[in-house]
Write a protein that binds this DNA or RNA. Structure first.
Lengths: 114, 114
DNA sequence: CTACAACTTCGAGCGCACTCTAAGTCAAGC
DNA sequence: GCTTGACTTAGAGTGCGCTCGAAGTTGTAG
C-alpha cells in the first residue's frame, strides 16, 4: 500500500501521514525499491486506532506517550491499559457534559417559538 | 460587577474576557467613573451561554455570527433558532460518535487483560 | 502621603495540529 | 525519449483560541 492508498483509506492526507511519522506517532515506514513508503494492513489498523483517539479528543502528546509504550513492547501493557482507561473515563465525562448542553440548547431553541 | 468578579464567576480570565470583547463576542462593556468595566447579571448569563456553545465545540467565528444576529435584535430570531438547531444536531451526532468510540476503547482495554 | 492591587490599552507570543511549498527523483505510458 | 504524475525531503506558513507583557492610571488601606 502506497501513502496515497493509506491516505484514501484513513481520510488523512499524505502530508499528515508523513507528519505523523516525523513526530513519532507512526513507526518509520518500510520502503519499496524506489524509496517510497510501503504500508501493510497492520499500519492501517494503527492509524484507525489513532483516529479513534483523535475523535475522542486525545492530544497528540498523549498519543505519543501511548505510541512510545507500544513501541517499547512487552512489559508496558499495564501502563497502556491504565492510559486508555483514564482516557475512557474522561471521554465518558465529556459525553455527559455534552448531553447536558444538548438540554440547554433544546430549551433555548424552544424559547424562540415557531 | 468588575471584570475580576465576572472572571471568577465564569471561569474565564480577565484577559480572555477583554479578548472576547475585542473580537465582538461581547458587547462593549459599561464603564464606571474610573473607566473600569462594570458588568451586570445579563452579561453573566450571556457568557455562560457562550460557555455552552464552547463546550459543545462551536468555533468562535460561528459564535460571532450568532452574537451579531443577537445584536441586530428583533427580526433575527428565525436565523438564530436555525443556527442553534443546526448546531444541536451536529452535537447530537458527535455524542453518537463518541459513544461508539467508547465501545472501541472498552474493547481495547478489555483486550489487555488484567 | 505612600504603597499596593487591580484596572487600562496595545500588541506580541504561544501551543496545537496540521498544511503547504520548493526542489528534486523515479516509474510507467505514449 | 519524453511527458506526466506520484513520490521524496526539509522547512516555512496557517488558523485557532487564547495568553502574556509592558507601561501607565486609579481607588483603597495603613
Amino acid at each position: 500500500m502506497k501513502i496515497s492508498d493509506l491516505a484514501e483509506r484513513t481520510g488523512l492526507t499524505a502530508h499528515t501521514i508523513r507528519y505523523y511519522e516525523r513526530i513519532g506517532l507512526m513507526p518509520a515506514a518500510q520502503r519499496d525499491r524506489s524509496g517510497h513508503r510501503a504500508y501493510d494492513e497492520r499500519t492501517l489498523v494503527w492509524v484507525e486506532f489513532l483516529g479513534h483517539l483523535k475523535t475522542t479528543g486525545m492530544p497528540i502528546r498523549d498519543m505519543l506517550d501511548y505510541a512510545r509504550l507500544r513501541a517499547a513492547g512487552a512489559g508496558t501493557e499495564g501502563q497502556r491499559k491504565a492510559m486508555l482507561a483514564r482516557h475512557r473515563d474522561a471521554v465518558a465525562l465529556r459525553v455527559v457534559a455534552l448531553t447536558e448542553c444538548l438540554d440547554v440548547l433544546d430549551a433555548k431553541i424552544a424559547g424562540y417559538g415557531d
